[in-house]
Amino acid sequence: MERFEKPVLIVKNLRKQFGHGCGECEALESDKLKKNYCPVCGTVYGCQDVSFEVYPGEILGVVGESGSGKSTMMKCLYFDENVTCGEAYINTYKNGESNVFEESSQQKRYIRNNLLGKVYQNPILGLKMDFSSIGNIAEKLIAAGSRRVGEMEERGRQLLEHVNIPVFRIKEEVKNFSGGMQQRVQIAKALSNNPPLLLLDEVTTGLDLSVQANVLDLIKEIQHELGISMIVVSHDLGVIRMLADRTIVMLNGRIIEQGLTDQILEDPQHPYTQQLVHSLL
């Protein structure tokens, strides 16, 4: 059957290794590696040939234990880390025909500023803490090429209102904000350039339940209203169940299983996924 829709993002064989690798480990044969570590040369393989696609308007969930490579993969996709090898194609960039990992650093900056948004688990990584919330948004807009102060302020106000930051606090430094508010400012900042793809890395981890609910509702609302595709990384299966249509499960830097979220939760195939699902309280 012909493809009935075009992916927003295609990732092929993304590999990220920390170390030079050796003849023993480069083929990534599981019997030669200890989990994701080569006992001969000490190389750690953060992501081992990860491949997946993200489709328009969908939320793709990524689950896995700490150290499974989820965040490394997200860092590579946002160019926070350079990949060792692999390909990624964004359909709104050069018609989806150019491997973005091989682009110049200037082009990568363009992609990051114009086509992607990222929300980090730790707001310190995503926000300038000494800037106001509207200043943080302006920073992203300026990076994306905006120069008109009035327009930027208007856009900032709209976005901050959308994520429920009180108007009277938008000029206050974000370091004064609570964790939940900082996450909401991060989301507003990530949305400011209307990216077709949003990367959310453990955005609700560490927040108390009611604040978590608030952030999750906001993410779902964004998906419904703006139709933005998202990759949501979480080790919380409840978050994934609530948000994601499809889910990939990672272990030791590899994708060990992928499927419809309800299928992953009700009929997991891989021993690790079964263990993970059965650990649900």
């Binding site: 059957m1 009935f4 969908e58 992928q258 499927g259 419809l260």
Partner: peptide, 14 residues
């Protein structure tokens, strides 16, 4: 005619 047992996930979602 589509085989739901083997259909792609995105087709099932649709």
């Amino acid at each position: 005619l589509i085989n739901l047992a083997r259909a792609k996930e995105r087709e099932v979602i649709y």
